[in-house]
């Protein structure tokens, strides 16, 4: 049995099902991310594991112990909220000590633990500050420390970075990941941000409409999306059906009805250049529509028989002089043409 085991969890609000027979597991020390758009049920699922939402049916285990009907305080989990949820009437020290005090620990016992945690979250010297005197990032670090100091069996993170601005979000997410590795803390992380999910996770579960769409490592989720939903959600995939591709002029299309093709695997060959027909590539001719500079890559939009193809090219290849309506040749490696399961 895995360290965390969720089995056939169902939950509905009235007639509306929000979790439809969810089962998954997390290994000890693993960083698992629940990824999906808002309303997909990921937060409900996390809160159910914390015991803050009850479920209609199913079972949940942590470390082999059935926690399904335990109250939140007995589940030995730590949780960090999007809103930080720090106690405004308590200093940084008291916020972090709260959980230990609740565990009937004496002051002499918890003081060194709290001080050590304050050092770990890099807030030394701010022990006596109140939450409203700290910046958002600092507050969220306190919330993190408050959860970790109790050494919970599982750390639950409910969109902890969403209220922070982009720069702090990136640095804090790396800090969380490092801390998680250092403490070997089993972690379940909820986010709607695919970039965040791809950078920090050992494994990702993509959820949609209360169901698990796909699970796998960041690499697998990104390069081998299994469904149209995942392909569209995870990146700026080109999602094309077989008839659309035929109309766009592709020949030798692999078997399948629906395909996801990443913008960066498509290459642009100027029409004038005589390109050899390599085996293993599909070719077609299109017209340059417009482009956008995304930073290190340039995204071209090419019209191929009425289909809009997004093509990413590294921002150093000198293609920028391509003019509007200029004819270009597109080449796609057939093996990078990822067949998808269902038409959404």
């Amino acid at each position: 049995m895995s360290f965390v085991q969720v089995e056939h969890v169902m939950k509905s609000y009235g007639e509306v099902p929000v979790l439809k027979d969810i089962s998954f597991s997390v290994e000890e020390g693993e960083f698992l991310t629940l990824l999906g758009p808002s309303g997909c049920g990921k937060s409900t699922l996390l809160r159910a594991i914390a015991g803050l939402n009850d479920i209609d049916s199913g079972k949940m285990f942590i470390g082999g112990r059935d926690i399904t009907s335990l109250s939140p305080k007995d589940r030995q989990v730590g949780m960090v909220f999007q809103s930080y949820a720090l106690f405004p009437n308590m200093s940084v020290f008291d916020n972090i000590a709260f959980g230990l005090k609740m565990g009937k620990m004496k002051k002499a016992e918890y003081t060194p633990l709290v001080e050590q945690m304050i050092e770990i979250i890099d807030l030394k010297g701010k022990e006596n500050y109140y939450p409203n005197q700290l910046s958002g990032g600092q507050q969220q670090r306190v919330a993190l420390g408050r959860s970790l100091v109790k050494r919970p069996k599982v750390l639950l993170l409910d969109e902890p970075l969403s209220a922070l601005d982009a720069k702090i979000r990136r640095s804090l997410r790396n800090e969380i990941r490092q801390l998680q590795r250092k403490l070997n803390m089993t972690t379940i992380f909820v986010t709607h941000d695919q970039e965040e999910a791809l950078t920090v996770s050992d494994r990702i579960i993509v959820m949609n409409n209360g169901e698990i769409e796909q699970q796998g490592t960041s690499e697998e989720i990104y390069t081998l999306p299994g469904t149209e939903f995942v392909a569209r959600f995870i990146g700026s995939y080109n999602v094309w059906s077989r008839p659309e591709m035929e109309q766009a002029g592709f020949a030798d299309i692999p078997s399948g009805d629906l395909f996801a093709i990443r913008p960066e695997v498509i290459s642009i060959v100027p029409q004038a250049a005589v390109a050899a027909h390599d085996a293993g590539y599909m070719y077609t001719i299109g017209y340059m529509k417009h482009y956008a500079i995304l930073g290190n890559v340039v995204r071209y939009h090419v019209d191929i028989g009425g289909l809009d193809a997004s093509v990413d090219v590294l921002n150093d290849s000198g293609l920028l002089h391509l003019r509007e309506n200029e004819a270009v040749r597109l080449a796609i490696p057939m093996e990078k043409c990822q067949p998808l399961k269902k038409l959404g």
Binding site: A50, L52, K73, M79, A85, F87, M102, R146, S147
Partner: peptide
């Protein structure tokens, strides 16, 4: 609501959460 939930996950009963937080 968030404060009570945070307190509960940290091991406080509902009454304690109300009183302390």
């Amino acid at each position: 609501i968030d404060l009570v939930e945070a307190a509960e996950v940290l091991g406080a009963g509902k009454m304690t959460a109300f009183r302390k937080v």
